[in-house]
Simulated assay, not measured.
Amino acid sequence: MDDRDWLILQLLYKKKNITKTAQSLYISQPSLTHRLQQIEKELGVVLVNRGRRGVQFTPQGEYVAKHANQILLDIQKIKENVSNMEKDVVGTLRLGVSDSFTHYKLPQLLKAFKEDYPKVEFKVTTDWSKEIVQLAYNQDIHIGIVRGDYSWQGEKHLLFSETLCIVSKEKINIKDLPNLPRIDYRTDYLLRAMIDNWWTDNFAVAPRVNIEVDRADTCKGMVLNGLGYAIVPSMIVENVDNIHKIDLIDKKGNPILRPTWMIYYKDTLDMSIVHAFADFVLETHHVEK
C-alpha cells in the first residue's frame, strides 16, 4: 500500500460514499472501486460492504481506516524532515488561516515571504478560527492564524488587535441604532458574543436586523450602498473611503478589541521552513520573539 491508498481509506471512512470519495480524489468511480478491491486483496480481508445506505466498514476496515490519519501524518513528517535536511528553506508549508485574514492580509504576506524564500510552496486551509485551532491540535497544519481568544496549549503570539466598529454610509448616532436597519453577516461565535454583549449593555431592545448575509464582504457592500449599518472588525473596512465608523467601547470607556493570533507547536520550529515563516510573520507585525 502507498500513501494514495491510505488517503483513499481516510476519505472513504469520512464520506461513507464511493462517488463523493472518487470526486474528491479526481478519479472515476470504477477506478476507485478497483483500487479498493486491490487493497482488500493485499490485506486479505474485506474492508467495506456496499449497500443502499452507502459504504459500511467492517470491523477490520474500521481498524485500518482509523490508522490512516496517523500513517498519512507520519508520511508527511518524513517528507518534511528529509526536505529540512537541506540547507535551503524549501518544501510545502501547511497553513490554517481564518477567513477574514485570508482575504485581507494573507496574499500580501505570502507574496513577501515568497520573495525571500522562492523555493517554498504553500498549502492553505481557510476555515472558521475554531476549526483552524482543531487542525493545529491534530497537526494537520504547521501554523495557524486565528481571530479571537481560543484556548491553545502551544506557542501563541499576538499579531495585532483591532477595534469593533459600527459602520454606515451616512453619519448616525449610536442612540438611534435600535430604530435603524442593521445588516448582519455569518461569523464565529466569539465575535457574535462580543457584539451581542455590547448591545445588551447599551440597549434594552433587540436590534432591527433587516438583512442577513453569509460573508463580511457582502455585508460591507450592503453598507456602502446605504442599506443599513453593520458592526464589524475594523480590518473589514480598512482603507475604505466614504464610510462612517464609530468604535465600540465598553462600560469603562475602553475600546472593544478583537485579537489575531499565530499558533503552532514549538517542536515544529525544528523545520527550517516553519521557523523561517514564524519569524517572518513576527517581524512583519513587529512582534518580539
Results as ranks from 00 to 15, higher is better:
D196R: 10
Q29V: 15
Q139S: 05
K119M: 09
W128M: 13
I18N: 11
G228D: 04
R208D: 02
N69A: 14
M222I: 07
L177W: 02
H285I: 01
Y104T: 06
L180I: 06
H67S: 15
V209M: 07
H142F: 07
G44P: 02
S100V: 05
K16I: 04
Q134D: 06
T218N: 11
W198M: 03
I231G: 00
S98H: 11
T187N: 08
M271C: 10
D184H: 08
Q29F: 06
A65T: 05
Q76V: 07
Q70C: 12
F57A: 06
E288Q: 06
Q76K: 15
D149V: 08
H34K: 10
D196V: 09
I211V: 13
N225I: 06
L227W: 14
D247T: 03
Y229K: 00
R147D: 05
G44C: 01
G148P: 02
R215D: 07
L164G: 02
I195N: 00
H285V: 04
G226W: 09
C165S: 15
L227G: 09
L269W: 03
G91C: 09
T268H: 12
V82N: 05
V281E: 11
K79S: 06
Y185P: 00
S168Y: 09
K77F: 06
K87L: 15
R50E: 10
D214L: 08
K169E: 14
G148H: 01
V274T: 08
P233V: 04
D267C: 03
L282M: 15
I172W: 03
W6K: 01
Q153G: 05
I263K: 01
L93E: 02
K171N: 14
I273A: 13
A193H: 13
R35Q: 02
A206K: 15
S98T: 13
G154E: 01
W6V: 04
I195T: 04
Y137T: 07
V209F: 02
H142N: 13
I8M: 05
N254Q: 15
L177C: 02
L164E: 02
I273F: 15
E86P: 01
V213L: 04
C165W: 03
V120A: 09
I195F: 01
K289T: 13
K119T: 06
C219D: 03
Y117P: 00
E80A: 06
P59K: 10
S129N: 05
A65E: 08
L135C: 06
M1K: 00
I27D: 12
T218P: 07
L224M: 15
V120K: 12
L32S: 05
R50G: 05
S272G: 15
P118V: 12
V232M: 11
E162Y: 00
A276C: 09
N138F: 12
A68V: 04
F277E: 00
Q70M: 13
L135I: 13
P233M: 08
V45N: 01
L158S: 04
E121P: 09
D3T: 14
H285A: 05
V124F: 05
D196G: 07
G148D: 06
T33F: 07
R50P: 12
G51S: 08
R52E: 11
M85P: 00
V89E: 07
D279L: 10
N239F: 08
Q70N: 11
N138I: 11
V64F: 14
D214G: 05
N81H: 06
L159S: 02
F122N: 10
I174D: 05
A112V: 02
S83I: 04
Q76T: 13
D188H: 12
N84K: 13
D267V: 10
L135K: 10
Q108A: 10
